[in-house]
Design a protein around this nucleic acid. Structure first.
Lengths: 110, 110
DNA sequence: ACGATAGGCAACGACACGGTTGCGTTTCCC
DNA sequence: GGGAAACGCAACCGTGTCGTTGCCTATCGT
């Protein structure tokens, strides 16, 4: 399953989760290492707490983030392994492109 | 500008363009090397030609693809350079995560 | 025990998205 | 020249998304 055709559903959800500026900002905040609460994440935004909550749910659904309830607050942590799937897909696509160019070059030179 | 905070708008558009199964399938088709017409791309799909056209416009807006009008048909070609931006963003994010873990480790060990 | 803080749930509105149908225009080919 | 192929444009529809507001529950601190 190294060709880009195989298994399109999962990477699409991942890319879709990354395809929003607000969500990318959250990823940037969380990739700093700290596990942060919803209140902490929505404090320096013009968004409502519920808006941030929804985005976090989307990101959790895509595997980008993991939540852990501690006391009265729920902390969200970044999951860097989730990016491996995206990177693998990008590499598969550009690898297929590179191979295609290589085959074309060999064909022309023969 | 190597931190993930800088310039969030452009990669978000790129990821959003990749965040759709139909569009990912088109990328897979086009990454095979050949420059294909809209009719060719929509022939082996259950979608209408106009649906494929809209997806191609979105992908072109994100820089994923380039169009070239030849005769009565317009050919679309994959642009692998577009993926570099996405890969750079992923690397920046996971790099920031890795550095944060490293700093934490050093702090704990001191 | 009580106020304040953190959060979950649900409804709602505005708008974008994915897709279709219909029609007109250009280009190819016989 | 005329039919057919390839495309563009615009309107339209159903659904999803983004964000809000309102309200209710749980937990913390004093």
């Amino acid at each position: 399953m190294s060709n880009p055709e195989g298994g399109i559903g999962e990477p699409a959800k991942l890319f879709a989760a990354l395809g929003d500026p607000t969500r990318l900002a959250l990823v940037a905040r969380l990739s700093a290492g700290e596990s942060l609460s919803i209140a902490a994440l929505s404090s320096d935004t013009r968004l409502t707490r519920q808006a941030v909550t929804k985005h976090l749910h989307v990101m959790q659904e895509a595997g980008l983030v993991a939540s852990e309830r501690v006391g009265r607050e729920s902390r969200y942590a970044f999951r860097p392994e989730a990016l491996d799937g995206a990177r693998a897909y990008l590499d598969a696509v550009s690898g297929q492109w590179r191979d295609a160019l290589h085959r074309l070059k060999r064909f022309v030179e023969e």
